[in-house]
């Protein structure tokens, strides 16, 4: 084979691209878990939440969440008859140790557990300049902490305030929907430890998941639907004052 220098130079980039593809190979998949078979979300049943803070403590234990930061937290809403649009919201230490006792009171009180909504059209993943945060094929928004620069664009972009910069690692940190648990067939730490069943892990791609029937028969909302984030944290029985 007799290649001129010019032909060689023309062929070289093509060969390099081919080599890249050969290296990429076939994706390695975890045993018994197929990413394309799932589309995870969370059902939060507000009338069942008693504000005990078990979910917050469980999340911090399971995920080594630093003190003072929260991947999930509980808010207590206090709505009186005259200020429906201006509720009083408290979340002392994320609701981790429960809430102050309220003596008999005619006003409306309820607890709203908050966490990453694992949006299918997430603003946080769209603003990342380096591709360090992303939605997985099974619908979980994760952070690649080895790749994150800590620029905090995503922290600003999240309309739900679900991200923070880890005080020691100096990179973005957030709820992983206990990805290390759900891929092993377990449920998330918050769901496992909720004593009243106010939280349910749901798999929207599983036709046998009771979520499908639940969504048909209940008044279910997502937070800030006007932002069109495709949020997958579904709130049952949510009051209009919840922000």
């Amino acid at each position: 084979m007799n290649l001129s220098r010019r032909h060689f130079l023309v062929l070289l980039p093509a060969a390099a691209i081919g080599y890249e593809y050969a290296l990429a190979g076939t994706p390695a998949t975890a045993p018994n878990y197929n990413k394309s078979d799932h589309w995870w979300g969370m059902l939060i049943d507000i009338p069942k939440c008693i504000g005990c803070g078990n979910c917050v403590r469980a999340c911090q234990t399971e995920n080594n969440v630093p003190e003072g930061f929260f991947r999930t937290w509980v808010e207590r809403y206090h709505v009186d008859d005259w200020h429906l649009e201006r509720p009083e919201v408290i979340s002392p230490d994320g609701g981790k140790e429960g809430f102050p006792v309220v003596e008999a009171d005619a006003d409306k009180y309820f607890f709203v557990p908050k966490m990453c909504n694992h949006c299918s059209d997430s603003p946080c993943t769209q603003v990342c300049p380096v591709g360090a945060t992303f939605i997985t094929p099974d619908g979980v928004v994760l952070v690649d902490q080895t790749y994150c620069l800590g620029c905090a664009y995503c922290v600003q972009a999240c309309p739900y305030g679900c991200r923070y910069i880890h005080p020691e690692k100096k990179v973005a940190d957030k709820c992983t929907l206990c990805y290390h648990r759900i891929t092993k067939g377990l449920t998330t730490a918050c769901v496992e430890n909720c004593p009243t069943g106010a939280r349910q892990l749901v798999d929207l791609k599983d036709p046998k998941d009771p979520i499908h029937e639940f969504l048909k028969t209940h008044n279910v909302q997502v937070l800030k639907p006007q932002m069109a984030t495709g949020a997958k944290a579904f709130y049952n029985g949510m009051d209009g004052s919840v922000r």
Binding site: T61, E62, G131, L142, D144, T146, Y179, K184
Partner: peptide, 29 residues
């Protein structure tokens, strides 16, 4: 990284790294 772009504009191996984190709550089962 080798796995960048495997699923999208991110490092595909990060998914398996996060999935391999240790579990602390064993689960009621």
């Amino acid at each position: 990284p080798k796995s960048f772009g495997e699923y999208g504009h991110y490092r595909g191996a990060a998914i398996d790294e996060i999935a391999a984190l240790p579990v602390k709550f064993a689960g009621h089962q």
